[in-house]
Amino acid sequence: MENDVMRASLASAEAAQNNHTPELKMSARDVRVFYGESEALHGVDLDIYANEVLAFIGPSGCGKSTFLRCLNRMNDTIDGCRVTGRIELDGEDIYDRRLDVVLLRARVGMVFQKPNPFPKSIYENIAYGPRLHGLAESRAELDEIVQRSLTRAGLWDEVKDRLDQPGTGLSGGQQQRLCIARAIAVSPEVILMDEPCSALDPIATAKVEQLITELSESYTIVIVTHNMQQAARISKRTAFFHLGNLVEVDETTKIFTTPSDSRTEDYITGRFG
């Protein structure tokens, strides 16, 4: 079944590249976020296309994480946080009252800045999501999901002998890949990553980056990064945020070579940030 999905999504990715008419996955219109009284995002408009890797860059505190959290409504969990505007997933308003956040988050997964494996075994960490959503009907099916997710996250060979050991015992890089595996175990359509490599050493970072590139064949990935080289290496398009505004979004190569906004240029060339 998963092979079907993969093949299908590969096909669609190819189609998207071939046709040069990328298919719209998510879109945000005039999104504003308030923490209590203060406005942290001042009206963001952004389109996200299927099977692309989109990077968010910008100085810290400019609202990248805030916007990312809007995309799967993680902001709901913050007291006093209010979101206005419209965000669509496959043409559907995700802030619609009738929409089930549980379902939304199953479709739009998230990987956090600091690896946050549960204090459970490696197996249980991966099986957690599929169990919640009832994705596996038998133990065998669950085993298969766990193995497949770990394999896709490039972690299987490293942990296959110690699935019953605590996930917190892994190294930082392994933990982060475990968290990615955990996210893909529920087969989301979009994966949001908030600076997934900022707590990792260069080697672990390289592994995760490679993983992201691979995953982009089947998933839409939005990644916040502090590291501009990283954005350049892995993303197809890049969005630059500044002081709560989305300054510009374009092909990564264009952003890094000929940005149209002077603020972007200043940031890229390291004049601030």
Binding site: A8, E92, L103
Partner: peptide, 27 residues
Amino acid sequence: MDIQQAQPNPPAAASDKRRVRVEKSLQ
């Protein structure tokens, strides 16, 4: 859920099946 009715993309078939499962347990 209305959300699953709008299904323009091809991998939807498998994805649909999965979502049906998810929804089954939602209530």
